[in-house]
Amino acid sequence: MSEERGLFIYGIVPSDVEPTPDASGVGDPPGEVTVVRHGRVAALVSEVPLQGALGRPADLTAYQELLDGTATVAPVLPVRFGTVVTGPDAVVDLLDAHGDRFAAVLDELEGQVQYVVHGRYDESALVQRVLDDNPSAADLADQVRGQPEEATRGQRIRLGEIISQAVELRRESENRELLDTLGPLTVAGVARPPSNELDAVNVAFLVDADREDEFVDAVEDFAEQRRGLVLMRLLGPLAPYDFVNAHQLAG
């Protein structure tokens, strides 16, 4: 059984980056991560069998951990998960054809990392808030409370719809406020689609390393102001996943 193998590309980095020996990649068993260099840029890659399928949770995690780990020491341009080429020659071709563009983007990303600020409403605190703010919701709440669901289905749907719309409005303004508050401290910010009905904020930021402390302090203040209402999380430092779309090669 001949095993055809390809090279999985994780990301593009400056050519002075090299993986630590313990870096492990996607696949089962995990592939060894190596570097293919060409000029000023290089690609982080590992071998994968072409027969197998990729995308297990462990694959996604390995991909992310490698890129996030890299982002803390060097600029990195994530390549879309699942990109596999025939071999090192193909990687060199790619770097040769697009090296200037990659190098320019990497220069821009130097010293920058991504953070994601994610907040989720505490459901009961949120619902209470909506009932307090909205008399017709409070009225409907009185009608359905303690009543069987079948008997009050219409009112329940109306009530739930009011709450749902309230969440959307609040989310929009929370995202805007977060972007306004942190905008001056960051290179860029972009709101991400909600991942849950109770999402309060979900924004990715590109942050200069020398302003990280300031940024984190500001996020903490933002979280503090919402204590009890929003469970706030800060993910990062991450590779700049949300800030490379403008540099897609397509077209």
Binding site: I9, V48, R80, F81, V84, L94, A97, R192
Partner: peptide, 25 residues
């Protein structure tokens, strides 16, 4: 993880490089 990495990153498709291999995801 899914939210962070899926559908993100530079796209290198077959039109750009013929060496891109389709792999089952």
């Amino acid at each position: 993880v899914v939210e962070t990495v899926l559908d993100k990153g530079v796209v290198i498709d077959a039109q750009i490089s013929v060496a891109v291999v389709g792999i089952q995801l």
